[in-house]
Design a protein around this nucleic acid. Sequence first.
DNA 1: GATAAGGGTTCCAGAGACTGGAAGGTCAAC
DNA 2: GTTGACCTTCCAGTCTCTGGAACCCTTATC
Lengths: 133, 133
Amino acid sequence: MNIGLAAKHSNVNAKTIRYYESIGLIPDASRTGNGYRTYSDKDVETLRFIHHSRNLGFSVKDVGTLLDLWRNQKRASADVKALALSHIKEVDRKIEELRKVRDTLTHLTQRCHGDDRPDCPILKGLAGETVDA
Amino acid sequence: MNIGLAAKHSNVNAKTIRYYESIGLIPDASRTGNGYRTYSDKDVETLRFIHHSRNLGFSVKDVGTLLDLWRNQKRASADVKALALSHIKEVDRKIEELRKVRDTLTHLTQRCHGDDRPDCPILKGLAGETVDA
DNA sequence: GATAAGGGTTCCAGAGACTGGAAGGTCAAC
DNA sequence: GTTGACCTTCCAGTCTCTGGAACCCTTATC
């Protein structure tokens, strides 16, 4: 199948597929006589794997590692698990950070009248002034 | 003061200060005879405002808007609040997304033995297979 | 006076992960 | 034969810095 169909079936943009090829995440696609890239069902499967991995927040580099492990029949599941656990830790860190951000923002906005007066605890907070409860 | 000291006092990297100047987030600094940029305490205050805003996840563009509002004595606090609320919404969206990601990853890793055997529910999950409880 | 350390300056390139656009070739249908 | 939907390549832009090279200025020390 052509790149457009592969894109449709895998939910990976055609442009992105070419990009993945250019950075070596996937091997160069074979070409038909007219120079068009062709993809097999197996290629689409790979693209789907990539799509899922990216959706779960793995970096493209990590996806490369996961692809290697996926293709390697002699892999140890411990290697995969280690990568996943370290990623979970990172996700947790990000969630915690965002939670703090949200709490601060909520605190500030709750104290802001939000009318046509210029007094604004949000700006004061950003400027570094303490905004009391 | 020179850029290094301004950086120290504001917690904004000297390189980043120059970058902010280059994109017009802050006005061009005045220069001493030798061509060095000079900063006043007020400039440092502005940099701190920027630092706090960026820490709370506002985009540089939004920080520009916030700076305008901050400097404008006739602003309406409603404008600031609207920006902040919309940002909170975005942060909430991200937290929710990350929580889903973490749940999926946790589900998969809990089912992975993580030993030297190749069988791995994580890879199966990424490939699209259903991984049952 | 030479030199070294520790500032500062500019400009260019790279990061990550795409995405958009221009300029053009190909193919199937009408 | 022309339209429209594909495909191709290559370059530039997004966003927010950060690193590095090559160079200048100031001050202190030998």
